[in-house]
């Protein structure tokens, strides 16, 4: 759950924002980078953002996009092979973040299909103007994520697993057929 103090979220989207929050921390933890929620006021100037990765998703109940923007340092810390392309790596991180969210949604019975990721230069982004960014800081650098979506009429995110779409393989797991 998102701590109440010093973090950003749109209260209208709380369950999905909570999911985004948890998945973001899990993703960076899987690359051994601890990120902690912080105030939007601490986030650096837009020109310090390296790139952002955008992952679109769509389904009968839900469609929208997840965006992940960072300063350069978290990209350097998490890329296991050095940072030859910031744009490519932030896209892959956004892809992996959306994969985690998709698996959480599936467990609740909400099925979405994913697009391929797109990368945008961070220079012209201004997270302070965004609807509901969640801001994290690492030992060095910052990470900002947000989700923008619309649901079908009457859609509410289930609060309990459906048991129907439990992911067959979890993050970091291997299965041999």
């Amino acid at each position: 759950m998102i701590p109440q103090n010093g973090t950003m979220r749109n209260p209208d989207n709380q369950p999905i924002d909570d999911m985004l929050f948890d998945c973001s921390r899990e993703l960076f933890a899987s690359y051994e980078l601890d990120i902690q929620p912080c105030s939007r006021d601490e986030f650096p100037a837009p020109e310090d953002l390296a790139f952002c990765g955008v992952m679109g998703f769509g389904g009968k109940q839900l469609r929208g996009a997840v965006v992940l923007a960072t300063t350069r340092e978290p990209l350097e810390k998490t890329s296991p092979v050095g940072l030859t392309s910031q744009r490519d790596w932030v896209c892959e991180l956004a892809n992996q973040l959306m994969g985690r969210i998709k698996n959480r949604l599936l467990a609740l019975g909400v099925e979405v299909l994913l697009s391929t990721p797109s990368g945008l230069s961070g220079n012209n982004l201004s997270p302070g103007q965004l609807r509901a960014p969640q801001v994290f800081k690492a030992a060095t650098g910052f990470v900002c994520v947000w989700i923008d979506y619309e649901g079908s009429e009457g859609f509410e995110l289930p609060t309990a697993p459906s048991g129907v779409f439990e992911p067959a393989v979890g993050e970091g797991e291997t299965i041999i057929f």
Partner: peptide, 28 residues
């Protein structure tokens, strides 16, 4: 080697002849 873990996709891969499924991030 993917971020996906959806059973329907795993089954589709299996039906097409895939021998395994790894969800990123992977351990080298």
């Amino acid at each position: 080697l993917t971020t996906e873990g959806q059973p329907a996709l795993v089954q589709r891969a299996k039906a097409a002849g895939a021998k395994g499924w790894i969800v990123k991030p992977f351990k080298p």
